[in-house]
Design a protein around this nucleic acid. Structure first.
Length: 195
DNA sequence: CCCTGATTCGC
DNA sequence: GCGAATCAGG
């Protein structure tokens, strides 16, 4: 694959949007994130102050004692930094899809939450599965979630023992296999059983 | 361990 | 110019 105008354009666009090199590479296809980064540098567009670059690049400050404000920066930047934005959009999908595992009962904070009281219209098997893997959950915090960690929330967010499953997600989905099972109900299982 | 970007250097 | 290997960091 070569850097056609289209591909470069997409690269620029995504990079500008704050997409990570690996994400861009994924999108483009046929290239690695290294290739993307290399290209980005060659194109001259670089620093974005993203996750992992707190360059303490202290200017030698040539002017001996004249902190004169340099007019050499007429840039008008509408947006200070992309950092917050990126994190924001990263969290949204998770919150959006958050099914909030039915936890009707008010459980006193600090309790083990033994029986899984949810079982609404979810297949018993799926539930059993969830209860199983929940023991093996990685119990990640919000910040530790990645594209391939199950984002299923467990517990009460207002409680100390609130965490996210964190097991490997199913391709594409935001949850691990077990949680996908209870998160995405085919409707077929929630047909009105009473009638 | 997963991930991030930055740099180097042979091609 | 390209990008794998490597580095440096979270």
């Amino acid at each position: 694959m070569s850097w056609t105008d289209e591909r470069v354009e997409l690269l620029k666009k995504m990079w500008g949007e704050g997409q990570s090199a690996s994400q861009i590479a994924k999108e483009l296809g046929g290239v690695t994130r290294n290739a993307v980064i290399g290209k980005v540098h060659r194109l001259g567009l670089s620093n974005r102050t993203t996750a992992s670059s707190a360059k303490p690049e202290a200017k030698p400050a040539p002017a001996a004692a004249a902190p004169a404000p340099k007019p050499a920066e007429p840039k008008a930047r509408p947006e200070p930094k992309t950092e917050p934005a990126r994190e924001a959009i990263k969290e949204e999908p998770a919150a959006e899809a958050k099914p909030i595992p039915a936890r009707k009962q008010i459980i006193p904070a600090g309790q083990p939450l033994p029986p899984q009281p949810s079982a609404n219209e979810i297949s018993p098997e799926a539930l059993a599965k969830v209860n199983e893997i929940e023991k093996k959950a990685k119990k990640l915090t919000l910040m530790e979630l990645t594209e391939r960690t199950c984002k299923w929330p467990v517990g009460d967010p207002a409680t100390p023992d609130f965490w996210f499953c964190g097991l490997p997600v199913q391709q594409g989905k935001p949850y691990c296999e077990a949680h996908v099972g209870v998160a995405f109900q085919p409707m077929s299982s929630r047909r009105d059983r009473r009638r």
